[in-house]
Design a protein around this nucleic acid. Structure first.
Lengths: 330, 330
DNA sequence: AAAGATTCAGAATACGTTTTCCTGCACGAC
DNA sequence: GTCGTGCAGGAAAACGTATTCTGAATCTTT
């Protein structure tokens, strides 16, 4: 009595004793049907273990119930949380996510774009690992940019509020009574480093000793920066860092030089990358980018765009300060 | 003269002055057509910027040119490289990958499975973040397990050769003349920790001082283990670790206690997780899991299975020892 | 009781492609 | 000159669903 292959809607209709049109309506809660008929069809579908064929559905409804996600962030450091958030929102609407990792190769990006267009995905999320604006993609499909905004202000982009994030770290340090701050961050060729540095300068005011220090996004640079800082400004009592990696290096070097964190020097990180922030000694007070929320909101905007109502422009999402022992002590 | 919507094969056929059947054959290199006709159709498609509609294609050909990837590894630590590898192999065949992160929730897994089946994906890759065998999934579609094998030996599973990996680290240490080895690894509830420990015991023989030490997969445990080891076995000259995190903790603590790595004690990690292995002081000699290759091979086997030829059973893929300063010095 | 309104469900069509089958047609062989 | 033979391309069916249109039956109203 086992059906040879997967059941089609025809089988359901036959079992329920109705036409396939009626079966379709019953299963989709559309059209005008008696409740009793609906129920009968539903039971037949249940009994057969029927799941509608997405291909037929896509073709007929004009929607593929699929969205593409294009990312240049091979490491997944940023795109994974965003993807998780997006999945949250999308899977509620029964939409699937196809992931395309371009690995920063324009050819690959072009290839994936063609593939997504040919699959007639309902929309595309574009993201990357840098906060720099990127060239928009040219497709006849709704697109939302996350993390890396589009250079075209007419596109929809959701980004993290780096200014607010850096400010919140500084405010936190000042509220703790620290008044001699240094800022150690990434390369001055990175938009995110520049934005965080500018916000830090603005929020710290007179409390900042010396200009922001730019270097690599690495623990090594954090350690080296501490050496430099203690030589030139031995009186400092707080260091806000542009990333958790830098902050971890800073903490390590301070400890090695006999300075207590946070008693002598309070340290803040940036990103709340748990691998770094929690493994650091002590664990880091840091700025969480709330990337999952960014992903959820991005997907929400994409669904809106697919539905026809587009909110154009750049949207900055708030960060969240996570306090731990590197500023609060044990 | 701009066509209103995306061009269909009908438009191509009309422009080339042939029927749609002929157009299809020309574009797919099937059927019997004059070379001249093929070329004409091809040019028409080019001119119109035609890309075949994946939905129609899927429906008609019976293949969706899509494979699903089910993972429990939310962090992406293991599944991202596997996915990249799989993408390599799949995108060559114009297949797309839809990613489903179950977050270890059986309900979510069930949901995604239904979704994938209903999309009629051509195959499914199942992976996770543990090396423990997992319950097989029940779908009428080819499935290949990667990293986490299926408990059913009749399924196709590709895993990492943990035994060989751990052995290679020990062999390396012994070739360097180390003869008093300790092994520090993760919880004895983890298959991977047990397998690596067993292989280490076997490969080290008399050189092993004391039984493998099980603890957390953390830097903290690595540091603590060093304290214990130096108290009970101050003469040790090498520590092989079950993960890069543990190894990094080990290195840190050894340095803090004035022991030189690798001069006094050589240290090996496991995983070649660059975040840990390269940031460690000194950088770690470690075992690379070759996860991208695992992904490529997995996808290859899946394509075979889709094509009809299944290689059943468990396949162990070799690891690769990466030597750095933690055993070789500067 | 008859006419109109309303409710329900079936028939038919559309979605865009692939694929099978079939029809001309030219060519060579007898 | 007729009959196969092989090739190029067209017509049509098929894939599985959603939707629109239409017709029949039932209910309401006067």
């Amino acid at each position: 009595m086992v059906s040879r292959s997967v059941p089609r809607i025809t089988d359901v209709a036959a079992l329920a004793g109705v036409s396939i049109g009626t079966a379709s309506k019953a299963l989709n809660d559309t059209g005008q049907l008696r409740a009793e008929t609906r129920e009968r069809v539903r039971r037949a579908a249940e009994q057969l273990g029927f799941t509608p064929d997405g291909r037929g559905r896509a073709l007929s409804s004009g929607r593929s119930f699929t969205v593409g996600m294009i990312t240049t962030d091979s490491s997944g450091r940023f795109s994974i949380p965003i993807m998780r958030g997006a999945e949250d929102t999308l899977s509620a609407g029964e939409m699937a996510l196809v992931l395309c990792d371009t690995r920063d190769d324009p050819l690959r990006e072009q290839h994936y774009l063609r593939s997504l267009v040919s699959r007639r995905v309902d929309g595309i999320i574009v993201t990357g690992r840098r906060t720099e604006a990127r060239a928009p993609i040219d497709v006849p499909i709704p697109v939302v940019y996350a993390f890396s905004p589009s250079t075209d202000p007419g596109d929809t982009s959701l980004v993290v509020d780096d200014h607010g994030g850096a400010s919140s770290a500084v405010r936190h340090l000042r509220e703790l009574g620290r008044s001699r701050l240094a800022h150690v961050t990434g390369p001055d060729t990175h938009q995110s480093a520049l934005a965080r540095a500018a916000a830090t300068v603005e929020a710290a005011g007179d409390s900042l000793i010396g200009p922001p220090m730019h270097g690599e996004w690495s623990e090594r640079w954090g350690r080296h920066a501490v050496d430099v800082l203690l030589r030139t400004h031995p009186e400092l009592d707080a260091i806000s860092c542009g990333s958790d990696q830098i902050a971890r290096g800073v903490c390590d070097r301070l400890r090695e030089l006999g300075r207590s964190v946070p008693d002598d020097v309070a340290v803040t990180g940036y990103d709340n990358w748990s691998v770094m922030a929690l493994a650091s000694r002590p664990p880091l007070t840091t700025v969480d980018l709330e990337l999952e929320e960014l992903g959820r909101r991005t997907a929400g905007h994409l669904l809106d765009a697919i539905g026809g109502s587009t909110h154009r422009g750049l949207l900055e999402l708030p960060t969240r300060l996570v306090t731990r022992e590197s500023t609060l002590g044990a």
